[in-house]
Computed example of a mutant assay.
Amino acid sequence: MAEKIVMKMDVANDNKKRKAMMAVSMLPGINFMSMDMKAKKMTVIGMVDPVMVVDKLRKRWNAHFISVGPKEEPKKAETKKEEPKKTDAKKEQPRKDSAEHIGQLVKLYQAYNPQLTTHYSVIVREEDPNSCVIG
């Protein structure tokens, strides 16, 4: 499960911010990164070890954990009452069996490309007069 890691860092300018984000982005498992320069907070979301993230940052910057926890799930909207849906005449027709449908698609593809990819050509050096063999 993805974790949300929030760290406080002492970063002075955009150049140092870019370098810090590049250092953290090299770690595997990161899905999202952002940095708030006013609050001096970096947020990392993903399947990554929080200790590795802070160790990577502490090599050059002063970094401390603020919070580590599960990624917040978006709140679901209240369930709405379902109204009876109007059905179209086209939708009421039963679908064909999936095997038949796939068979028809294969036949259409064979008509479009009759050779498929079952034929391969191999060039033999002895038959090609333009090839150069040093021996």
Results as ranks from 00 to 15, higher is better:
65 F>P: 00
89 A>W: 06
11 V>Q: 01
13 N>P: 02
63 A>M: 02
28 P>N: 09
74 P>C: 07
119 H>Y: 12
105 L>S: 11
107 K>D: 00
104 Q>K: 13
94 P>M: 04
87 T>A: 06
42 M>V: 04
126 E>T: 02
109 Y>Q: 06
123 I>A: 11
39 A>D: 10
127 E>R: 11
18 R>I: 00
84 P>T: 11
71 K>W: 08
119 H>N: 15
101 H>M: 13
6 V>Q: 03
43 T>C: 01
104 Q>S: 09
78 E>S: 06
70 P>C: 05
69 G>W: 12
35 M>N: 08
97 D>P: 05
113 N>D: 14
4 K>S: 07
66 I>W: 00
80 K>E: 10
34 S>K: 14
89 A>R: 13
84 P>W: 10
135 G>D: 02
126 E>Q: 15
51 V>R: 07
87 T>V: 08
28 P>Y: 12
116 L>T: 05
29 G>K: 09
62 N>E: 13
79 T>M: 14
47 M>T: 13
127 E>Q: 14
82 E>Y: 05
15 N>L: 05
35 M>A: 11
80 K>M: 06
14 D>T: 11
21 M>V: 04
23 A>L: 14
67 S>P: 02
31 N>A: 10
67 S>F: 12
134 I>A: 04
44 V>S: 01
17 K>F: 04
65 F>T: 02
70 P>K: 14
25 S>L: 12
25 S>Q: 14
44 V>R: 06
62 N>K: 15
12 A>I: 12
23 A>H: 13
28 P>Q: 13
7 M>P: 01
87 T>Q: 05
30 I>Y: 12
81 K>I: 13
55 D>K: 15
117 T>C: 11
120 Y>C: 02
110 Q>P: 01
53 V>Q: 14
21 M>P: 03
39 A>T: 12
91 K>Y: 01
17 K>C: 06
40 K>W: 01
8 K>A: 07
57 L>M: 14
132 C>V: 08
8 K>P: 00
60 R>A: 03
29 G>M: 06
117 T>L: 14
118 T>G: 11
53 V>F: 13
53 V>T: 12
56 K>T: 10
20 A>L: 03
48 V>K: 05
114 P>S: 04
36 D>A: 10
123 I>F: 12
53 V>W: 06
121 S>G: 06
70 P>M: 11
38 K>Q: 09
121 S>W: 09
13 N>T: 05
21 M>D: 04
110 Q>S: 05
48 V>C: 02
26 M>Q: 09
105 L>Y: 07
16 K>P: 00
72 E>N: 11
48 V>G: 03
78 E>L: 06
91 K>R: 08
99 A>V: 13
7 M>K: 02
124 V>P: 00
33 M>A: 00
45 I>A: 01
10 D>P: 01
99 A>C: 10
86 K>H: 09
120 Y>Q: 10
125 R>G: 06
115 Q>R: 03
34 S>M: 08
106 V>S: 03
49 D>T: 09
53 V>I: 15
67 S>V: 04
112 Y>Q: 09
133 V>P: 00
79 T>C: 08
103 G>Q: 07
39 A>K: 13
3 E>M: 12
124 V>E: 05
31 N>Q: 06
108 L>Y: 12
115 Q>N: 12
62 N>M: 11
41 K>L: 06
82 E>A: 07
11 V>S: 00
25 S>C: 02
121 S>L: 10
124 V>R: 15
87 T>R: 11
64 H>W: 09
33 M>H: 00
97 D>K: 14
75 K>Y: 04
